[in-house]
Amino acid sequence: MKPNRTLQSLSLGIGFLFLYIPILSLVVYSFNASELVTVWSGFSLKWYAAMWHDAELINAAWLSLKIGLMTAFASVFIGTWAGFVLARMGRFRGVTLFNGLISAPLVIPEVIQGISLLLLFVEMGKLLGWPSQRGMFTIWIGHVMLCVSYVAIIVQSRLRDLDPALEEAGLDLGATPLRVFFSITLPIISQALVSGWLLSFTLSVDDVVTSAFLSGPGSTTLPLVVFSRVRLGLNPEMNALATLFITVVTIGVVVANHFMQAAERRRVALAV
């Protein structure tokens, strides 16, 4: 029995509307002249101007952006090697423990991770004098711990689909394993690395629970500021800032997707 195309299209359309109507409404109301977020009173850009004079909001946004970039790069670097070990090293002593350590942040509630890291840093501060206070560095460590697992799983899945004959050919031609990795394996799994980078960046910028436990005076991230303000009422400035983030992320995803598709076309052309 052939599937009903009309029903499929309707279901897909409803799904997309459910996902994107809230985002579109946020973008539209960021140009609202009224101080009431849900009452339209005319087109205005005043909330974008007001946002740039909101020091707390701008500082929190820059802090989240810096931590997100640092987390994305560190997670891709560590997670790539972890995924490579899981996919290529076979059964070695401690592989079960290693796999469990990589997978643990995916299943352990984030509040438990935040508490455990908080206690760790407090005890380290007492015994070693480091860290002297919680701030950007401690938040970054917590985010990397969470995001490395996602990158490792993505890279591991991509490597399992990779034909080992390509790497073996490089070894037969005299290349060292390290040269094979950087010249053959890394370009092929580049799409997985870009996906892991984008996912890590998004998780870091969006994180509330871990950041709440690991932040300190002067190190409040954007989600914490938004969460604290929402409890007192919605602020149109946050709509403007969210719209800017949506625009930047959309441009980043489109550009990354363009380069990923171009790389895939080159790979297919070379294979043919």
Rank of each mutant, 00 (worst) to 15 (best):
A269Q: 08
S64Q: 07
I246S: 08
F201Y: 08
L17N: 06
L26F: 14
I108E: 10
A74M: 13
F84M: 07
L232G: 11
T96G: 15
G42V: 12
S183A: 14
A242G: 09
F18D: 05
M145K: 03
H143S: 11
S34V: 09
F98V: 00
L45A: 12
M136T: 04
F121V: 03
S200A: 15
E123F: 09
S103V: 13
R134T: 02
P164D: 02
A256W: 10
L171C: 04
L193Q: 03
A262G: 10
M260R: 10
N99K: 04
S75Q: 14
M136E: 07
S30N: 06
G68E: 09
L10W: 04
F201G: 00
S157I: 05
F227W: 15
S64K: 05
V226Y: 03
S25C: 05
G13D: 02
Y20A: 02
L146W: 08
A242S: 14
M1K: 06
Q113V: 15
S219M: 06
G15C: 13
Y29F: 09
V28Q: 03
V95E: 07
E237S: 04
R91T: 14
W52K: 08
S64P: 03
L128M: 03
V249M: 00
W81Y: 12
S149D: 03
M1N: 12
I153T: 11
L101Y: 01
W81M: 09
L7H: 04
L270N: 09
S75E: 05
N257W: 03
N257E: 12
K66L: 07
F43P: 13
F18C: 10
V144G: 13
G15S: 12
Y150W: 13
F259E: 06
P109L: 11
F213M: 02
I139R: 08
A262R: 15
D172C: 10
I141V: 15
V209D: 04
N99I: 04
L117P: 11
T38E: 02
V205K: 00
I112A: 13
V111R: 03
L26R: 08
L128A: 10
F16R: 02
I102V: 15
R93K: 14
G114Q: 14
F84P: 07
P109E: 06
T96Y: 11
A50M: 09
T210N: 05
G170F: 07
Y150D: 06
G42K: 02
T221M: 05
A169P: 07
A72F: 08
A165P: 01
S30L: 00
L186W: 06
W197K: 07
F77E: 08
P3E: 02
F182Q: 13
G174N: 04
N59V: 07
I115D: 05
Q133Y: 02
M51T: 15
L120C: 02
F137T: 12
L234G: 01
D161W: 03
Q191R: 11
M51E: 13
F137K: 03
